[in-house]
Write a protein that binds this DNA or RNA. Structure first.
Lengths: 130, 130
DNA sequence: GTCTATGCAAAGAGTTTGCAGATGT
DNA sequence: ACATCTGCAAACTCTTTGCATAGAC
């Protein structure tokens, strides 16, 4: 493991991630942090987002279209992506249910399963989803 | 909807996708199809993979690392990605279970949910997963 | 003082697109 | 004949990386 040293930039990124319910892309994070650190570079944002994700202090979400998104909420939960506006929403489900999924998968898979993510597709309230 | 015209290249791509249990990247598809069509271009492969995905005759799988992967199996199922070798495996689960997931999500989400994908993380048999 | 993090810019992957010519209907 | 598809190459987006300097310990 590398020796981790404090940096204001990383602190600001973590702070921003945990303060928003959105699931910003790296670029969105960059634009936000730039208000406080006008000289911060996109490279630094990527480096820190990946660091946070590796440390388990953030989650990287891959969607089929566009870049990855980051989520500062480390409590396990699912995501819904709106097929109309593209926004990503949190979906809280009983954790026991998620654990059951892992166990079910572990039984069926020739190997071991440790975790999973689920991405639901739908239409959000603002876009007319009932 | 656009008018779709037959092409040998697309047919070969679809054929290849449904003949393999792997989940090739666009580039892997390209290398394979090139054995039959030495002049095919990567652009054509991408165009056709996206066409097939849009028509529901293939599935695009997004993983956090590396490019998207494609799956010719259109029967709903989950995927397991090996955290050691990066390969993607099929995970067949009772379809009723998947339907229940959608209904559960639909209840919790302020909007409507139509479908979902799940990606499990684990270690495959070849890499030492028990 | 030493080691890590930053900013910058360049490079790298993966993917899309415009165009002229080939191909399917 | 006409519309679509192909091959090619250039362009584009997203992300990573090398290097000199600034900052943390």
């Amino acid at each position: 493991m590398a020796n981790l040293k404090y940096s204001r930039q990383r602190a600001a990124i973590k702070e921003y991630l945990s303060s928003t319910l959105d699931h910003p892309t790296a670029d969105t994070v960059y634009l936000h942090i730039r208000e406080e650190f006008p000289n911060i570079s996109l490279g630094t944002v990527y480096r820190n987002l990946n660091l946070l994700a590796d440390m388990g202090e953030a989650v990287k979400i891959s969607t089929p279209d566009g870049g990855d998104r980051f989520d500062g909420c480390t409590v396990p939960h699912y995501h819904v992506v709106c097929q109309s506006c593209g926004r990503v929403f949190d979906l809280k489900v009983d954790e026991r249910y998620m654990q059951e999924m892992n166990e079910l998968a572990d039984q069926y898979f020739e190997g071991s399963v440790a975790a999973h993510t689920a991405l639901f597709y739908g239409i959000c309230k603002d876009c007319g989803g009932s």
